[in-house]
């Protein structure tokens, strides 16, 4: 994307939740290549360390913070440690998420609360601690992970659909509240993307990976998304290329929702 040696995120600090795998990992690697110092935040210590190490081995700057994004104290610590060790916080990518493939009948109360905590409450918590830092620095960017299922319904995923609908509208509300602080807030709505989460869905539904992935590829562009496809969308929203874009959802789904 960049014509600039140093990258289009040079001098920026980005915190990425769920950075140990899938879309979060691809985004961490891409942002680092584009010059950002990256704080990889995840509960997966081994995976998160590996991503941070890969960035450092590439001669870039990264740290790993072990953090349960559903816990306020953890989120506050993740933001603080990022600021202390990387010198600020310009980009918050609220990417961490989980899915439970079940109807209302089959979803337990614990599962419902956990999906809401990881997918929605985490955005509230991290933004709460990140926004004052961004505002003080003159602005920032927040990118929330929504989903095509935040825009339309999906079968056997009621808690996930509810959580992603919430993400889409809290993105708009945050954009209204923090525009005057020059903080842009947008979300990305991917379609099925080849990540560990997608393969876990196949397992939850008792389907083979092959069959599940083949069905997911039935969309106008005739393939499923790759983490890199979504990372590029995040890069667009994180960069100055989108300086007048706020309160929107960027759909990246190979045309899945077009018709």
């Amino acid at each position: 994307m960049s014509n600039n040696e140093r990258g289009i995120l040079a001098g920026k600090v980005a915190l990425i939740t769920g950075g140990a795998s899938g879309i979060g990992r691809a985004t961490a690697l891409l942002f680092a290549r584009e010059g950002a110092a990256v704080s990889v935040v995840d509960v997966d210590e081994a995976g998160g360390q590996a991503v941070a190490q890969a960035i450092v081995d590439d001669g870039r700057q990264a740290i790993f913070v072990c953090c349960d994004v559903s816990q306020a104290e953890d989120c506050q610590r993740a933001v603080q440690q990022t600021v202390d060790e990387l010198g600020g916080l310009d980009i918050l990518f609220n990417n961490a998420g989980i899915i439970r493939r079940a109807t209302v009948i089959d979803t337990t109360e614990e599962e419902w609360d956990r999906v809401m905590a990881i997918n929605v409450k985490s955005i509230f918590l991290l933004s709460k601690y990140a926004i004052p830092i961004m505002a003080q620095a003159g602005g920032g960017v927040i990118i929330n992970m929504a989903s095509g299922w935040g825009l339309v319904g999906g079968r056997r995923a009621v808690s996930y659909c509810a959580s992603k609908g919430a993400v889409v509208n809290m993105t708009r509300a945050m954009a209204l509240d923090h525009g005057e602080q020059n903080i842009r807030v947008n979300c990305i709505s991917p379609g099925d993307t080849d990540t560990p989460m997608l393969r876990d869905e196949a397992r939850q539904l008792g389907e083979s990976d092959e069959r599940f992935l083949a069905e997911a590829a039935q969309r106008p562009l005739q393939r499923i998304g790759q983490p890199e496809d979504i990372a590029q969308a995040a890069l667009y929203l994180a960069s100055d290329a989108s300086s007048f874009v706020t309160g929107t959802t960027l759909v990246v789904d190979g045309g899945g929702l077009a018709g």
């Binding site: 969308a233 960027l250 759909v251 789904d253």
Partner: peptide, 9 residues
Amino acid sequence: DDAAFITGH
């Protein structure tokens, strides 16, 4: 090519 998976929106 950064938007290679984006269509119909």
